[in-house]
Simulated scan of single mutants.
Amino acid sequence: MASNPCEEAKLSKKHEEILGKRVELLQKMESQYEQQKVRKKQQSLVSEAAQKRNAQLLQDLQELENRLRTKTLLHPDVINLETRYWASVEENLPAWERYFLGKGHPPVDEVRKSPGHRKQKEKNRALSPPQDKGRPPLPRTKSAM
């Protein structure tokens, strides 16, 4: 195979270019492989951390479940009050139903208001100047002077 020295030089040059590109590609592949290894390691660390966190959350939930199961019972007086409260709510619910549905006013009249509310009104009347309603003013007690 006798060939022309000029052709041999061209082929040799082309061979060198191909070898250079091969080395370049091998280096790129190697760097990508290293990056992939790093990403994989980071991903495994993140996965391990998530597994530990999930295990801790599961353990916390189990502890809460156990605490709820072994919850101390309330004092009988408290249970009695709670039972009476809910019985009162169920008893008065029909009267309040229209109000809750937005179709009426609350079923509370002046007679049913709390004694504290009446006392406050009386105290306000005693402190405010008497209004002329055709009646003489109320006498003041000595303790108020």
Rank of each mutant, 00 (worst) to 15 (best):
S88P: 02
N4G: 01
L25K: 11
L57Y: 05
L26V: 01
Y33C: 05
R112N: 09
M1A: 15
P106T: 00
E24D: 15
K103S: 03
V108F: 13
K13H: 10
D77S: 06
L93I: 01
K133G: 14
A2V: 09
R135H: 06
L81K: 03
N66K: 09
Q43K: 13
I79R: 01
N124G: 02
E122L: 14
L61F: 11
K37V: 01
R98N: 12
P115A: 02
P115G: 00
I79A: 06
H15N: 15
E48W: 05
P76L: 06
S47M: 12
H117G: 00
L58T: 12
S12C: 07
L64F: 02
L138W: 03
W86N: 02
S143W: 10
G116Q: 05
L64S: 11
V38H: 08
S44G: 03
T83M: 13
R135Q: 08
L81A: 05
V111M: 12
L81C: 06
P129R: 06
L61P: 00
E82Y: 06
E63Y: 01
S12V: 00
P115V: 04
N92F: 02
E90D: 10
T70H: 12
P5Y: 08
H105I: 11
K119W: 08
L19Y: 03
K40Y: 04
L127R: 12
L57M: 12
R98F: 00
K123R: 14
P94T: 02
L74I: 04
V46P: 00
R22V: 10
E122A: 14
M29V: 07
K13P: 01
N66Y: 01
K113H: 05
F100Y: 12
D60K: 15
A55D: 11
E90Q: 06
A49H: 04
N54I: 03
N66E: 14
N54K: 07
L57W: 04
P107L: 05
L57I: 15
L64E: 15
R135N: 09
S143R: 13
Q32D: 13
V46K: 11
S114L: 14
R39G: 02
